[in-house]
Design a protein around this nucleic acid. Sequence first.
DNA 1: TGGATCCACTGGCTCAAGCCAGTTGCCGAG
DNA 2: CTCGGCAACTGGCTTGAGCCAGTGGATCCA
Lengths: 260, 260
Amino acid sequence: MPAKAPTPKAADKPSREIARLLRDAINGGELSPGAKLPSERELAESHGVARNTAREAIRLLTQEGLVQPEHGRGVFVRVRPKLMRFGRRRYSRAMRQSGLSPFRAEVIAQGRTPDTECRSVTRISAPGEVAERLEIPAGTDVVRRENWYYADGEPMQVGTTYSPWAIVEGSPIADTKKMGHGSIYGRFEELGYPIAYVREEISARMPTHEEAAGLSLPDGVPVIDLWHTGMDDRRRPFEVTRFVMRADFTALDYDMPVED
Amino acid sequence: MPAKAPTPKAADKPSREIARLLRDAINGGELSPGAKLPSERELAESHGVARNTAREAIRLLTQEGLVQPEHGRGVFVRVRPKLMRFGRRRYSRAMRQSGLSPFRAEVIAQGRTPDTECRSVTRISAPGEVAERLEIPAGTDVVRRENWYYADGEPMQVGTTYSPWAIVEGSPIADTKKMGHGSIYGRFEELGYPIAYVREEISARMPTHEEAAGLSLPDGVPVIDLWHTGMDDRRRPFEVTRFVMRADFTALDYDMPVED
DNA sequence: TGGATCCACTGGCTCAAGCCAGTTGCCGAG
DNA sequence: CTCGGCAACTGGCTTGAGCCAGTGGATCCA
């Protein structure tokens, strides 16, 4: 009869218990987005634990992306941004010249202001993962363009585009920073490479330090890592872009018919 | 001439410095995948810091997914699993009856053993995000099937499928656990809903506690959150599935023609 | 030989204390 | 009234200590 379970409650570790209480308060609406949590010291005192333990609870919630500490100000319930839906991830030839990339279109649709910046254009020898996708020998010369995409001034994604030097030599693609992403396929068409197929390979991971810093990512936000390959009507790849996107702002939609 | 920069090295916080050293050792190959790191106490002593500080360094690397602590054994360099590429995410009618889902195909291609388990089949009223996608009023009765997917016994993804009760009533879909995922579209076709279009909406995020526990996710691994909607030839949705997948094992490939 | 036990080792978690570094509002000098 | 500086907050990070809970090899007993 003594047994071992008078308290099935299992009274979790204090840090997890505090995290649970706060999580419930957030999900239950008692703490709404943007609200300030009690300070670490207050939490510690009110729960009768050391400050480190309260801190650990907050760390857990931060990792879950529920909450965001701001040095000197406090800990705030994260405002969940609307996901940017890069709607129906289909590519139409019309987009080719329009200069309206899926990114710009979506940002404008959300009533925000898009901005794109080409940070660098360089000629390098192709890294393995690029060469593979371009179906060229590793080490072949390629042009690398690094583009940053902003919404209301906040960086949202980085796209690094590679094209074989042999194809783009002499074209503005090879040396000009000023070139909207949307119109780039027009340039390729002039070069004899009309865009006809695209392939996208998607994975997700935690950002590296550099990415987290560059994209001003809060803790606990993963990135979507998307390799985009553009191919001509004979399925010859002529351009690959690696996008690194904030996962908390990004959703990708694909829509496709089922084949026979 | 005195200026302010005799030490541009900036001597980072000790925990970050230790993390950096370990990271370099891992990336540089001195510590190869599967290798055991020095214990927390050793690290602390050899760097002249408190154990907590060494611990913090390891926490950083864990969050980056570089390293995995195992209670009672040590901290190990993560073995980066090969991504499972759910190749060319196109759906062919042939798949309809074959019982060979993209998941099973990929796992077998990797020389691993797939397994699928239907954990529950229940009748519930549709949550908002399901109703929206099924284009039915929220609260309408739907059948919910929860499927778990394993490779070599390890859980890789969970798929929760919802279909309107009105459609599947009487069919094995509505009450049988034993039903391969691949063959489900055959059933729907019998019911007058041939699969003709699919839509997939993809985002990524950190897992909830339950998901992390259920999928035995190590710290610092995000999940891919994929809503899959199956539609018939008139674009009427009849089935939606929400997949939650380990991002460290998953890559999704889409291949599509560019429209005019 | 085979099995249970023990112990030295690992990470997990907490405590109490202290100093540093952003942020903000208040208050007093000009 | 304005501006500078201070003080009282906030989180960030470290220390050194202690106990708990898995792991796995050595050891001892039947």
